[in-house]
Amino acid sequence: MWSFFHKLGSPPWLYRITGSILRWLLPLTLIALAVGAVWGLLFTAPDFRQGNSYRIIYIHVPSAVVALAGYYVMAFAGAISLIWKMKMADVAMKSCAPVGAALTFIALVTGAIWGKPTWGTWWVWDARITSMLILLFLYLGVIALYEAFDNKEAAGKACAVLTLVGTVNIPIIYKSVDWWYSLHQPASIKFTGESSIDPSMLYPLLLMIGSFYALFTCALLMNMRLEILRRESRTGWVRKLVGA
């Protein structure tokens, strides 16, 4: 167990293992995304109330779910780097931010596009949407804060603190549709009790959520590998790697 943690902290080991994970995970993810998108777009029946605009659910919900989960990953990595000063946790935290920002952006944009034909408006300042916008700013804030420091150790510390403080926002996003009256509909999938979504629509949605999780993992690992190369550029193993 402990030797595994030691390995996790070793950049060359992490670089090698992420490379072999990506080799099969990345093609699998792309196939799953394509299958899920075609399934949702062409092979499901339209919603009896919303019509065809509901098909946006297959990208909107997965991107929103994974954008939130990604924040947990970033906060967790930030906490580890702050407490145990693990360099690779800092790398993971920094690498989460652009992926999370992209997914939050997708959730907001597809939500706006879904809102127009369904509610008749692109945007409302309601609790769910506003707290998602704050999530986007948190992700962008981490990116900007990291770039603002010349001393990367101080940058990592500041970002970790910002990330942990921002965690307050996450339960607010989850609960926003229950706490405040909102245009946004409550969750259709529940782990406990009956889901209010037909199985024929649920299966492609679950496939897309899984694919988006896999996609997050792929993008995170790719960013981490780039960051490892950059930080380790003066070490022997990187010289050997680029020289070979």
Binding site: G51, R55, I56, I106, V109, I113, K116, P117
Partner: peptide, 16 residues
């Protein structure tokens, strides 16, 4: 066309 929702749905998927 998706009964009028086409531009919204396809647009959202294209951006994504």
């Amino acid at each position: 066309a998706m009964e009028g929702h086409g531009p919204f749905v396809w647009g959202a998927y294209a951006i994504t």
